Amino acid sequence: MSTSPVRTGIVGCGMVAVEYAQTLAAANGIELGVCADLDGARAQSFADRHRITAVPVDHALDPATLDLALILTPPSTHAALARQAIAAGLRAVWIEKPFTTDPEDATALLQLAQRTNMLIGVAPDTMLGTAIQTASEALKQNLVGDVLSATASLFSTGPEGWHPSPEPFYSEHVGPLGDMGPYYLTALDYLLGPLHVRSAICRTRSDRRVGSGPHAGRLFTAQAPTYVTALLDTDTGTPITLITSFDAAGSRAPHLEIHGTDGTLVLPDPNAHDGQVLYLPYGQRTWTPLSPVPSSGPSSRGLGVLDLADALRKAHEPQCSAPRAERIVHLIGAIIRATAPSTTRSRIPAAP
């Protein structure tokens, strides 16, 4: 077991990288030293802000200077960069969600990492936060009884209202299902899984407009479904309804609900690490907030990276595992395939 700080670098200096850098800067046992981006000016600006060194992308995957690389680039680049990190001999890599955009790539990458003994951790890490851990503990204590059903809902206007470069969120294989679906599917798979796909409906509102930044007002075309409804179930036949939409002004629907013979749990947005979990006993009308379980770390992106660094030092598997991330990619692929009339029940790789 090593006691030296885990040397870490960031590849991809976009908006989400800022939160990761802040989390790592406040943590012990990990040292963020370099960053890289295809946009050299953006990398240098990020490096100056966080007092680290900007380097070319190849140098940010160099095991001579790094133990762990964070791949925070657009989803279509995840698989290639992860393979590059494995080929370079890096010890560990953290990949933003989704793991890959193609199920076959996810399976091949997982197998390659296992053959080379590379540790891979994959976002989201919100399942490590207090909200999902509190719900998990309630289910372990049988608070809701036998689980009868669950629902998950994301309704939003899409990222073009706040992100200055929203086009990648609408590229093929992304959209609300590829972008936000991993948060909801990971939470459901962690709490109730493994999951299977029964049927789905998708549609696309293709005309979008950039709402902020230097390109505000520019029109672009969505290549991915912007509305998805999917019917899932578990090994025990529990039905789960998932809705993800970038076509709504807003919603008051709960993000996650789990209904059982003895009561219902309502969970906050799984895009966040914390938040209140509510419980309603069957036959009652008053919702009770559950006491949150103790936090295992900061309530911010990067919590899973800290767990991965700990796994690297102590030689154990990370909690935000690549096998589960592979399952989520297969689930997303199965949902898209299920929109075809001939699609039958889709099987997903078994959970670890």
Results as ranks from 00 to 15, higher is better:
Thr226Phe: 00
Thr226Asp: 06
Tyr227Gly: 01
Thr229Cys: 04
Thr229Ser: 10
Ala230Asn: 01
Leu231Gly: 01
Leu231His: 05
Leu231Ile: 01
Leu232His: 02
Asp233Thr: 01
Asp233Ser: 08
Thr234Ile: 03
Thr234Gln: 07
Thr234Lys: 05
Asp235Ala: 13
Thr238Ala: 12
Thr238Asp: 06
Pro239Ala: 03
Thr241Met: 07
Thr241Val: 03
Thr241Cys: 04
Thr241Glu: 12
Leu242Val: 00
Leu242Arg: 00
Leu242Met: 02
Ile243Thr: 09
Phe246Ile: 00
Asp247Gln: 10
Ala248Glu: 10
Ala248Phe: 08
Ala248Ser: 13
Ala248Gly: 04
Ala249Trp: 14
Ala249Ser: 15
Ala249Lys: 14
Gly250Val: 03
Ser251Asp: 09
Ser251Val: 01
Ala253His: 10
Ala253Pro: 02
Pro254Gln: 02
Pro254His: 08
Leu256Val: 12
Leu256Ser: 05
Leu256Gly: 02
Leu256Ile: 12
Leu256Gln: 04
Leu256Asn: 01
Glu257Leu: 11
His259Thr: 11
Thr261Phe: 11
Asp262Leu: 10
Gly263Asp: 10
Gly263Tyr: 11
Thr264Gly: 07
Thr264Val: 11
Thr264Gln: 14
Leu265Gln: 10
Leu265Arg: 10
Val266Gln: 14
Val266Ser: 11
Val266Glu: 11
Leu267Tyr: 12
Leu267Asp: 06
Leu267Ala: 08
Pro268Lys: 04
Asp269Trp: 08
Asp269Ile: 03
Pro270Ser: 06
Asn271Arg: 10
Asn271Trp: 08
Ala272Asn: 14
Ala272Pro: 09
Gly275Gln: 03
Gly275Arg: 03
Gln276Ile: 15
Gln276Trp: 06
Val277Asp: 09
Leu278Phe: 14
Leu278Gln: 12
Leu278Glu: 13
Tyr279Arg: 11
Pro281Asn: 13
Pro281Cys: 11
Pro281Val: 06
Pro281Gln: 11
Tyr282Thr: 15
Tyr282Arg: 15
Gly283Met: 07
Gly283Gln: 11
Gln284Gly: 08
Gln284Trp: 10
Thr286Pro: 04
Thr286Val: 13
Trp287Ser: 12
Trp287Thr: 14
Trp287Met: 09
Thr288Lys: 13
Pro289Leu: 02
Ser291Asn: 15
Pro292Ser: 02
Pro292Ala: 02
Val293Trp: 04
Val293Ile: 01
Pro294Lys: 04
Pro294Gln: 06
Ser295Gly: 13
Ser295Cys: 07
Ser295Met: 04
Ser296Ala: 14
Ser296His: 07
Ser296Glu: 12
Ser296Gly: 15
Gly297Lys: 01
Gly297Arg: 00
Pro298Thr: 05
Ser299Met: 10
Ser299Thr: 10
Arg301His: 15
Arg301Met: 13
Arg301Ile: 08
Gly302Cys: 04
Gly302Lys: 01
Gly302His: 04
Leu303Gly: 03
Leu303Ile: 01
Leu303Ser: 02
Leu303Phe: 08
Leu303Met: 06
Leu306Ser: 03
Asp307Lys: 06
Leu308Lys: 09
Ala309Arg: 02
Ala309Lys: 05
Asp310Pro: 05
Ala311Gly: 13
Ala311Thr: 09
Leu312Gln: 04
Arg313Ile: 03
Lys314Ile: 05
Lys314Val: 09
Lys314Gln: 15
Ala315Glu: 11
